[in-house]
């Protein structure tokens, strides 16, 4: 042990950890992510059937999917879906809802101001900052390259 450098130990340690089963994980992510998107598609088609226009349908679908993600988080089900489906459950908008509702529930004991409200974005915050940030940059680039046309 004494004659091992930090790097040698870290290499040794890496060999001791079982490798994740990438194929199995990908299949699970595909099934869970696909199912969530399928539900989204069904909601979308239903909304069209009720006579909403494209813009209303996009907004409505997002609202319903966020509601479902939040509801399943509150019922203690979404964390189990996340454990099974990994990125398949985290990437869709339902996962985004989960990442906001979970800390909001967790930190209620610390009060509505510094608990719920402040901690709500501990996980989703970076997504919002860099998501909105990059959309602004893309928007500016679009404006620059299409200006004067």
């Amino acid at each position: 042990m004494d004659n091992m450098t930090n790097k040698e130990y870290q290499e040794y340690l890496k060999r001791k950890i079982p490798k994740p089963d990438y194929l199995n994980n990908s299949i699970r992510a595909f099934i869970v992510g696909g199912t969530i998107c399928l539900i989204g598609q069904i909601v979308r088609n239903m909304l069209f059937r009720f006579g909403f226009n494209e813009k209303e349908v996009v907004t409505g679908t997002a609202i319903i999917m966020v509601f479902l993600g939040s509801l399943l988080t509150g019922l203690g089900i979404y964390d189990k879906i996340g454990k099974f489906g990994g990125a398949g459950a985290a990437i869709p908008i339902t996962g985004f809802a989960n990442s906001i509702v979970a800390p909001a529930m967790e930190y209620k004991r610390e009060g509505y101001l510094f608990g719920v409200a402040a901690k709500m974005f501990t996980i989703a915050g970076p997504v919002l900052v860099y998501g909105i940030g990059s959309s602004i940059i893309v928007g500016l680039l679009y404006l620059i390259f299409t200006a004067g046309r």
Binding site: Y78, D79, G82, K83, G86, A89, N98, M105
Partner: peptide, 17 residues
């Protein structure tokens, strides 16, 4: 969990280790 890791209801996967 709430001090060192994630909120309980957050759907994260745990590593093997």
């Amino acid at each position: 969990e709430r001090q060192f890791r994630f909120p309980l209801e957050y759907g994260a996967q745990r590593k093997f280790s």
